[in-house]
Design a protein around this nucleic acid. Structure first.
Lengths: 258, 258
DNA sequence: CAGTGGTCTAGACCACGAA
DNA sequence: TCGTGGTCTAGACCACTGT
């Protein structure tokens, strides 16, 4: 792997400059024009390199102000069901969450997720999670008001950045979640998300749709989580895939798998 | 949301052209120079727009040949443990998998994943999955040869694009996987992956690291899956998060969550 | 207001594919 | 060989920040 791309070479050079202390933590880099001249590249190419380092968490750009060296944070983790007692909080890196609660009416997409008619009143919880000064993830949790009528008051304490408080709230209201399904995809940030998460529009994000149902198959909660791609991860632990199947071998050799 | 970005407007315009039939399925688009002149934009901006449509699966570029209109395929799904009998094969869209098996020695990263010393002999299975003509995902599955000595012959049939055949193989060899942990992240494709998956280096991918352990806590399998970001998804279903906990309410109001 | 990053352009050169 | 997409450059203009 020879790294023939110019902007990757430049990214390497800048990364070296950061790790060797030429550019120190918290300092402002030279302006893009100056850096481009210094490194003898065009500005678009330099910007591609800066994008790489920003995605790695080594840099943070501030429009109108400059580009600053930052300390990369440990990856943010979404690990539902990881109540196996391990101190996941060991990674606790001062996540601050701001929560706002509103009441909305379900639009088309949300209605289909929740399996309710459009226009249904829904309680919406918006979690914005920051680590230090930078936002890294946002969670939008929705519960039909018919599910837990007037019990959906303000959350008292924020224990999880992923809106699992709402599930606890439901439990207290007598609603027992049976299964939770999560659908994950990787995509580029939308303009709106880029602004919220303080990233560029070219940064990949991990998008998670979560749907919780009770024993009756009723959808009681739907959430949309967006995590910055790099420096974030989702962890799922599943039991044995084939608990005790006697593999019947009907030996087709070539593969059309479905 | 006014979509003020030029390349997004251009992407919209081209998308309209595709859906209205100005550019028909399978046809080649005008060259980038011609398109840029036609739409009155610069080529870099046009290329940003084409990247969007390519990520959506509406276009496919072939270096040296041209840009072609393609039919977007349904999302490729990774859903481990989804043996709840539902016909997931209903999404079967003619996935063709080519499998190659080699024997390697564990490098630093692989050794740490497998919890074996560096240099340990490892069987490596490489699954490359295509749908129609385009590759959409690749899975690299590794099993230490000490785990299932000479039983790690050729796979006879490819039932799953995700290397779960290897887990079946292990079962037949008397190795019982107890839990499987999956770590998911979103990032941009590396140059190598971009070539394999026939995407650009600016496309987000879903990267999945999977580690399977047996009852003794021994790591018996480690895999790295890479899925094209758009048009791919991973689905996990988890049981109730709070099976029956009596939520003790110690009412801290503001949120420092960890 | 001056300086910064954000976006877009015109044009060059290269690597690849088809004829 | 020639046309295509892949990469890079120099330079322009705008939006935002801080003075």
């Amino acid at each position: 792997m020879t790294l023939s791309l110019r902007y990757q070479q430049i990214a390497d050079e800048l990364r070296r400059g950061i790790t060797t202390g030429t550019y120190k933590l918290g300092e402002r880099l030279p302006s893009e024009d100056a850096l481009a001249a210094l490194l003898d590249v065009g500005r678009p190419t330099l910007r591609d390199a800066l994008d790489v380092l920003q995605a790695e968490g080594l840099l943070k750009k501030r429009h109108g102000s400059g580009t600053y060296v930052t300390r990369p944070q440990p990856p943010v983790r979404y690990a539902p069901g990881a109540r196996t007692g391990q101190p996941d909080a060991a990674v606790h890196s001062k996540i601050r969450t701001t929560l706002s609660v509103t009441s909305i009416k379900a639009g088309v997409k949300l209605a289909s997720l929740l399996h309710v008619p459009g226009g249904t009143p829904v309680a919406k919880y918006r979690y914005l999670n920051r680590e230090g000064e930078v936002a890294h993830s946002v969670a939008h949790v929705h519960v039909p008001q018919s599910v837990a009528d007037r019990d959906l008051r303000q959350i008292r304490e924020v224990r999880s950045p992923w809106g699992e408080d709402v599930l606890r709230l439901l439990l207290r209201a007598g609603v027992h979640v049976e299964t939770t399904a999560q659908r994950l995809a990787a995509r580029l940030a939308t303009a709106e998300e880029a602004k919220l998460l303080e990233i560029t529009i070219r940064t990949p994000v991990l998008s998670i749709e979560r749907v919780s149902t009770d024993a009756g198959g009723r959808v009681v909660e739907a959430a949309h989580l967006v995590l910055r791609g790099e420096r974030s991860e989702a962890v799922f632990t599943t039991p044995a895939l084939f608990p005790d199947e006697e593999a019947a071998d009907d030996g087709t050799v070539d593969g059309d798998a479905d």
